[in-house]
Every structure is written in structure tokens, then in C-alpha cells.
């Protein structure tokens, strides 16, 4: 039964991408091993953003006015210097078995941070019958935690207090807005998937 590993970016071998990286660190891997490794590695994903970054974007739309009418634009607090960049690769270990691995740079804005992350995963694939492929894959994220910082809001007669920057002008009591600070572990972005593919 023939097997083949998925190559989402099939035409682009990882050798091209990783060549520069590994060439800069010859001491890390012996050259023959590096070559072997690269021969079996493929670029899976090179992208910006993440589910956690998207969550920040969604939560930080709009703004509000202070009590004297001055506008507050949430975007100013939640725009990253550099976006979260992710590089993921797959290395074929044997026929129908591969590991996926990669890194995310994370991103930081004035009021939040997404930590850098390491991606580790696997792909198992079997051709059940002609033109039918069953793929079982998964990926775990180590690091990549999203945390949001609070603001210090001055409410005049009521004093200054820590408050969720996004919810400071809502009816929620300031102390309760802290319950809604973004706080998501990167681990929650881990996933498992089963895919059946039949070509006809």
C-alpha cells in the first residue's frame, strides 16, 4: 500500500528555507545529518498572525470617550510593533509518519503580549484504498501565552483604580472588568485532526 506525506506547499522544499538557517549554525548539526534532515523536511506554513492575535484584534476594535469628551482609540494600545510570525515545517521520519515543528515570534503591544512559541506535532497517514487517504495529525504549542495588561483609570469622585482598558467606560464595575482581561495559554491553540480524502 503506497503512502505519501502531505506537502501543503509541495513545490517549495524546506531545503531552500532552512538552508540559510542551518548554514549559519553548522555546529548544531553535523553536515551530513543536516543534509539528510533537510532532504526530508518541507515548509508547511509561513504566516503572520495567530488565533490569539486575531482575538486581540477583535477585542480592540473601536474606542470610547473620556468624561471630558477626549477620544480613546483602543487601536493605539493594541497594535503590535511586529506581528506574530509563524514558521512551521514537517520532517518525514518514515513512510507515512512525520513530525511537524516550528516557531512563532510572538508579538507585543502597549497593553498585551503574546509570548514566543514552539510548535511540535505529528502527521500519520495511510492510504486506505486507491485514491483514499486517511490522515491523523496534531500540533501542540509550547509557550505563546496571551496576556493583557490593565490600565489605571481615574474616575474622579470614585478615585483611581485598575481597570480593563477596553471596558473602562462600560457599565461594569471597574474591578469586575479585570475578569475579562485577555488571558489565554498558547496550549489552548493545540489541535488534533482526522482527515479523510478521496479523489475521484
Amino acid at each position: 500500500m503506497g503512502r505519501r506525506m502531505p506537502r501543503p506547499l509541495g513545490a517549495l522544499p524546506a531545503r531552500l528555507v532552512l538552508g540559510a538557517v542551518l548554514a549559519a549554525a553548522p555546529a548544531v548539526l553535523p553536515h551530513p545529518a543536516a543534509a539528510e534532515f533537510l532532504d526530508h523536511s518541507h515548509l508547511l506554513d509561513l504566516s503572520d498572525g495567530s488565533d490569539r492575535a486575531a482575538r486581540v484584534r477583535t477585542a480592540s476594535r473601536g474606542g470610547y470617550a473620556l468624561s471630558d469628551g477626549r477620544p480613546i482609540r483602543l487601536r493605539d494600545w493594541y497594535e503590535p510593533g511586529l506581528p506574530d510570525l509563524t514558521l512551521r515545517l514537517m520532517t518525514e521520519m518514515s513512510d507515512g509518519v512525520g513530525i511537524t515543528w516550528g516557531v512563532s515570534t510572538g508579538e507585543t503591544g502597549r497593553k498585551y503580549r503574546i509570548a514566543p512559541a514552539l510548535h511540535l506535532g505529528f502527521v500519520l497517514q495511510d492510504e486506505l484504498f486507491e485514491n483514499a487517504l486517511l490522515t491523523f495529525s496534531g500540533s501542540a504549542l509550547l509557550g505563546g501565552d496571551l496576556t493583557e495588561r490593565s490600565c489605571m483609570g481615574d474616575y474622579g469622585e470614585f478615585g483611581a483604580m485598575a481597570v480593563n482598558c477596553r471596558l473602562a467606560a462600560t457599565i461594569l464595575p471597574p474591578e469586575e472588568t479585570l475578569d475579562y482581561l485577555l488571558d489565554r495559554s498558547g496550549w489552548h491553540s493545540s489541535w488534533l485532526a482526522v482527515q479523510f480524502e478521496y479523489k475521484f
Binding site: A65, C151, Y155
Partner: peptide, 11 residues
């Protein structure tokens, strides 16, 4: 009411 519930200053 909009201004009363909003902070006077925030950072």
C-alpha cells in the same frame, strides 16, 4: 450618563 461612567483619565 455616557460621560459619567467613563474614566476622567486612563493610561
Amino acid at each position: 450618563i455616557g460621560r459619567a461612567i467613563a474614566p476622567s483619565r486612563i493610561d
